[in-house]
Simulated scan of single mutants.
Amino acid sequence: MGVTSSTFAAERPGTLADQAYRSIADRLVTLRIRPGEPINDDRIAAELGFGRTPVREALKRLEHERLIVAYPRRGTFATEVQIADLGHISEVRLQLEPLAAGLAAERASDADRAELTRLLTRLAKSSDSDDDLIRLDMTLHRAIYAATRNPYLEDTLIRYDNLATRIWCLFLDRLPGLAGHVHEHGPLLRAIVDRDAEKARALAAGHVEGFETAIRGVI
Rank of each mutant, 00 (worst) to 15 (best):
T4M: 13
F8D: 08
R12L: 12
G14A: 07
G14Q: 07
S23W: 03
I33H: 08
I33A: 13
R34H: 11
P35S: 08
E37Y: 06
N40R: 10
D41L: 12
I44Y: 02
L48I: 09
G49V: 05
G51F: 05
G51Q: 07
G51A: 10
R52P: 07
P54F: 01
V55D: 00
K60I: 12
E63F: 02
L67E: 10
F77Y: 03
I83A: 10
L86M: 06
R93H: 01
L96V: 09
E97A: 12
A101N: 08
L103K: 10
A104R: 05
R107E: 07
R107V: 05
S109V: 03
D110P: 07
L119Q: 06
S126Y: 03
S129A: 00
S129L: 01
D132N: 02
I134P: 04
T139F: 07
A143E: 09
A146P: 09
A147H: 04
N150C: 10
Y152T: 15
D155L: 14
R159I: 06
Y160K: 12
D161M: 13
T165W: 00
T165G: 03
L178S: 13
A179L: 11
G180W: 06
G180L: 08
H183A: 14
E184G: 13
H185P: 00
L188H: 01
L189W: 00
R190W: 01
I192Y: 00
D196P: 04
D196T: 10
E198D: 13
R201I: 05
A205R: 05
R216E: 05
